[in-house]
Design a protein around this nucleic acid. Structure first.
Length: 417
RNA sequence: GUGGACGUGGCCAAGUUAGGUUAAGGCGCCAGGUUGUGGCCCUGGAGAUCGAGGGUUCAAAUCCCUCCGUCCACCCCA
């Protein structure tokens, strides 16, 4: 028997209402903030991601779905959304539009990883990006939008963590002082952290090992090393966030795994979530567009994992609206009635009434049982009697009562139910 | 990629420790009990080569090996 490939899954009809719900809340939020949808291809040339995401990130080094196409070009299934958006921004001359350009996307995303709860090889991200605005008010807007998105979904007990990891001017100094701090403790640090020390010192901060995490408590903080530009950006951001009373907490150990982040980084996670608990994350990436050979253009955005959001919704028991239930099942007895049933259904569908035919070859009893099993509210019955006098029986499944309606008024009668 | 747990009809699941005739049970599905009426109840039915392949044995769901997959933790990330 064939199975879906490892780390992928079917999204079954019963689950679709969650997806519809998340998307509709998302659309609603972004439109309030003036963000427009941008769809980019599901694959790009590999180089876009190695340049954009960073050569030495895990995503690029070991998680990309890359292959040579028949023309010999290296193609990669998108492992994240931001690089593609920046490419599209440049390619379509959006730098000539009034700035900033506010965009959102929702798309499958691919990473070759070992699957785990809340982690898949194909997952779906919804994200927003604001390009061309350096000022921290746009950081505020993005973070505020992220928070309201979570709130509008009905999620509770969320933590909003923010930090500022500096830019190309001040981060080197910070990294120096980080290394200086950790240098004489290397023997105590875990194996992973010894590698991080050389490879990616920022990551020393968020190691989960008890010893390492204890040591990192007293590590230098990035916000103490900010250059004047970053410092101003950070201070004003905090001022704005306070003014709109967002319940953020500053997390000095918050760093992000993608190379392009500068200054503001943030995350939202449910309070008692597991290790894959981050459902939304984002930050500023002021150097990315330039890295992709555009004119230096600031940018900031966030991405959410829809699977993780849905896990959280289920975990918290948030009630999700049912979508488009079938209202009527049409039952019939005999071939003459069947012919008329086909006709009636055609009329109902034309009138926009959700209705389906009972399955063929069943007794009326079985047709009723079917209607009951699929949970429909009303049943229509067409038999010899009804055929003769041009009528239809309408049965209310909840109460069990039924009445006869005139076939000529069927649309009018059923529309009002 | 590393470490651990697990895999029995669509779903839940007994049986696996001490191998032994037709692999429990529940939910769901189908039909009948009501030749024009569902839900409750009763009766019956379909549906599993026990994740896959190999091995040990007179005999394997049960023991051994390999692979695949799921879950948890790590790495990392949405």
């Amino acid at each position: 028997m064939y199975r879906a490939p490892r780390g992928t899954t079917d999204i079954l009809p019963n689950d679709q209402r969650y997806w519809t719900y998340v998307h509709s809340v998302a659309r609603d939020v972004v439109s309030r903030y003036g963000y427009k949808r941008l769809d980019t291809p599901i694959f790009e040339q590999t180089d876009l991601f190695t340049r954009g995401v960073g050569e030495v990130t895990d995503i690029v080094e070991k998680e990309m779905y890359s292959f040579l196409d028949r023309g010999g070009d290296s193609i990669t299934l998108r492992p994240e959304g931001t690089a593609s958006v920046c490419r599209a921004y440049l390619e379509n001359g959006m730098h000539n539009l009034p700035q900033p350009v506010r965009l959102f996307y929702t798309s499958p995303t691919f990473r070759y990883e070992r699957p785990q709860a809340g982690r898949f090889r194909q997952h779906h991200q919804f994200g927003v990006e604001a390009l061309g605005e350096p000022d921290s008010y746009i950081d505020t807007e993005i973070i505020d939008m992220a928070w309201k998105f979570m709130r509008d979904l009905g999620l509770q007990n969320l933590r909003l963590l923010i930090n500022n990891i500096g830019d190309t001017e001040c981060r080197p100094h910070y990294l120096d002082s980080l290394r200086a701090y950790y240098d004489n403790q290397l023997t105590v640090l875990c194996k992973d952290c010894n590698q991080r020390f050389y490879r990616n010192p920022l990551r020393l901060l968020d190691c989960k090992q008890e010893i390492c995490s204890e040591i990192s408590l007293n590590a230098p903080r990035s916000v103490d090393y900010l250059c004047s530009g970053c410092k101003y950006h950070w201070d004003t951001l905090i001022g704005y966030l306070d003014r709109i009373e967002l319940p953020y907490s500053i997390e000095h150990k918050l760093v992000r795994g993608l190379d392009y982040y500068t200054r503001t980084v943030f995350e939202i996670q449910p309070e008692n979530a597991g290790s894959q608990g981050t459902i939304l994350a984002g930050g500023r990436y002021d150097g990315l567009i330039e890295e992709l050979q555009g004119k230096a253009t600031p940018g900031i955005g966030f991405a959410t994992g829809i699977e993780r959001i849905i896990l959280a919704l289920k975990d918290q028991g948030v009630s999700i609206p049912e979508e488009d239930p079938i209202k009527f099942v049409l039952t019939y007895m005999g071939d003459q009635a069947k012919l008329e049933a086909v006709h009636v259904l055609s009329i109902l569908h034309e009138a926009g009434i959700n209705s389906i035919m009972a399955p063929s070859g069943k007794s009326l009893r079985a047709q009723m049982r079917y209607a009951n099993n699929i949970g429909v509210s009303y049943v229509l019955v067409l038999g010899d009697e009804e055929l003769e006098n041009g009528s239809l029986v309408l049965k209310d499944m909840a109460g069990g009562s039924q009445r006869t309606i005139d076939l000529r008024a069927v649309v009018q009668e059923l529309s009002s139910i």
